[in-house]
Amino acid sequence: MRFVAIPTKVVRSYQAGGLDANGQVPERTLSDGAGNPCRHCLGMIPEAAGMLVLAHRPFPAPQPYAEVGPIFLCADACAAGGGEAMPAMLAASDYIVRGYGADDRIVYGTGGVVETAAIAARARELFKDARVSYLHVRSARNNCYQCRIDR
């Protein structure tokens, strides 16, 4: 299984002023250094670093289950994060881990709140279900999209 960031092509568009999922230009601000995870490098955006705030839909097309929500990105180009290791931005919190089918719709009964230390075990358990094609990791407090997990 691998943790997957928002694709670089999508991020570069946002960083260049491309419109977000709500048709708005991403807001540019400075990170306060706490609680600003970049969904591309999968690390925390350092204090006083440029940051984008925007609406993102981590699905290929609009449909009833294609949630849109706020995310943060580094304002300047950053390297894509991801891989088999737990991303740094997921440290010390609790998250919703939820399965989606090949049709990009929620697989009912797969969502649950887990602490960081249990994400990998929960992902392995959910991937035993043949209906689950991929997972989302979302904030348990605000439901904000964090990253995707692929088999």
Rank of each mutant, 00 (worst) to 15 (best):
G99F: 04
A140D: 13
G35E: 04
L73Q: 00
V4P: 01
C78K: 04
A21G: 05
S13A: 15
A118K: 13
R124K: 15
C38M: 07
E84T: 15
K9Q: 14
G18S: 03
D129I: 02
Y100N: 06
N36A: 07
D104C: 11
P70G: 09
A118T: 11
R98Y: 00
A80D: 07
I45D: 01
I71F: 00
A123L: 04
S139I: 00
G43W: 07
E84G: 07
F59K: 14
N22T: 03
V107I: 07
V113N: 04
Q63A: 08
S13C: 04
M86E: 09
L90F: 15
F3Q: 09
V137Y: 11
R151P: 14
G81I: 14
D129R: 06
V97L: 11
M86F: 08
A49K: 12
L54I: 02
P37W: 00
V25K: 14
N36S: 05
M86W: 04
V10N: 09
P64M: 05
G83I: 15
L90Y: 11
D94R: 10
P58N: 12
N36L: 00
C38I: 01
A55T: 01
P64S: 06
G109K: 07
D32M: 07
Y14I: 02
V137C: 08
G43S: 12
P7S: 10
A21T: 04
F59T: 10
A66S: 08
S93W: 10
G43M: 14
D20A: 03
G17W: 14
F72C: 11
I96H: 11
G109P: 13
F3H: 09
D104G: 00
C41W: 10
T116V: 07
